[in-house]
Each structure stands twice: as structure tokens, then as C-alpha cells.
Amino acid sequence: MKIKPKQYAISLFESLEGKNKKETEEIIEKFVQVLVENNQASQIEKIISYFSNLWGKENGLVEAEIISSRKLDNKIVKLLNDYIVKLSDAKKVNIEEKVDPGIIGGVVIKYGDKIMDGSLKTEIRDFKRVITN
């Protein structure tokens, strides 16, 4: 039977639970060998993506992205970080900052598969719709 990337990811995740650093390295090495033996090395990217999802879920990690029109100072990032933690019930948030002058102003927050669009661009578009209707 063909083993799916998701099943690889789950088995790797389960065998890594509660292991220390040295053991982890050993297991990962063996895992890669198994993959090569099964001719599944090409699936590694999918497996990694499933694995990081699992890992994030188990440890309360959330990937987030903040898009703003200019670079934000650390104080605001800290505030946004706390806000995302509150929204998503996560323990830790990995924030990636992006600058996109196209949104004119405001900020767009993405975390997990949620998006909050507080950009000036969207605001102007909505306002235009309200006025012209």
C-alpha cells in the first residue's frame, strides 16, 4: 500500500514526542533513510508542510503575517502580537512582517487561515460602494 505524505508526517511526529535533541537527530536521520528506501524522497516538501502544521497545533504555535504600508515600530508589533495571541488562543505567534505600499495605510493581519483586512485601500473601496449606491 502506498503511504501518504500525511501518514509519514504523523508517524514522524509521534515518534519524536518526548525525545531529547540527540534522539531527535537520530530519528530524523532514520526517517530520511526510510523515505529514500521507499522512493518517497520527492514527497519531502509535503511531509514537512504537514509536519509543521501538526507541530504548530500541538505546541500552540501560530504563523501570522502583518502587512502594512510602511515599516512598523516594535511597540506596535508587540501590541499586534498580543492581539493575535488573544484572537487565536495560541501560546506563541511567529510574526512575519511585510511592507506593501499598495494598501495605502492601515494594516492587514493574517493568522492561520483567518484574515482581517484593516487596510485603507479596502476601506476606501467599501466607502465608495456605500456612497455610490
Binding site: L87, D113, I115, D117, F127
Partner: peptide
């Protein structure tokens, strides 16, 4: 102005 949380 209202900001809604949407799923993407």
C-alpha cells in the same frame, strides 16, 4: 468602518 474576520 468595520473590520471583519474572514477565512481565507
Amino acid at each position: 468602518s468595520k473590520i471583519e474576520e474572514k477565512t481565507f
